[in-house]
Simulated assay, not measured.
Amino acid sequence: MKPSTRSVLKVGKWLIFPIYQPFLRGARAFTLSRQVLRDRRAFIEASAIDTALAPVMNPATIRALVSTRRNGRLCLLLFIGTLGVWIWSCVHQATRLYSLASVQFGVILLVLLAEFIRLSFSNWLLRTGGTGRFQAFIARGGNLWPR
């Protein structure tokens, strides 16, 4: 192919890209859905094994697990966002570390972190059946992430 023909084809492809782009996304989604459907049998068998080993819980406990997990993750996300805003405020706006705004940020960060730990502990208690102490909870770092 000549270099001039190759450049004309590149320009043509670039010009019609907005037309065929939605079809590319649809084709990728179709391929992915076929792959998921193909692998669903192995997924169903694996989840059946997991549920056979898990204890049966009543719906109220399941709702409490879901809400503590959701709210714990929300508190952690808010903590990270507030920490980012406070760092941005200190670096870019030259807010002093001992100013009133920094003290307010510190209090907000402390409350969000305490709420995250409380919700994670509640989630852990629900998963373990209400037995255990805070020392056993905090001894393993993986318990902090609500599941």
Rank of each mutant, 00 (worst) to 15 (best):
L100C: 12
A54F: 05
H92D: 15
F79P: 10
A114M: 05
S102H: 04
K10N: 03
Q104F: 12
A136W: 02
R147D: 07
G84W: 06
T68Q: 04
S102F: 04
R140A: 05
G106T: 00
C90K: 12
I44Q: 10
P55D: 08
G130H: 00
G130T: 03
R118S: 07
P22D: 01
G81S: 09
F134Q: 02
S102W: 03
L113M: 11
L37M: 07
G84I: 09
L78D: 13
Q104R: 08
V36M: 06
S47Y: 11
L97A: 12
T128K: 09
D39P: 14
W145D: 05
P55K: 02
Q21F: 08
L126Y: 01
A94E: 10
L78T: 05
L65S: 08
Q104D: 11
G84C: 03
L77S: 11
W88H: 15
T5C: 06
L100T: 14
E115H: 06
I44P: 11
P18C: 01
A52N: 10
A42S: 14
T95L: 13
S122D: 09
F116H: 06
E45P: 15
N143G: 02
F17K: 09
W88I: 15
T31N: 10
V107N: 02
F137G: 01
I62E: 09
R127Q: 08
G106M: 00
R96D: 15
R73C: 13
R133V: 06
L109A: 02
I108V: 03
S67H: 14
T5D: 14
L110E: 12
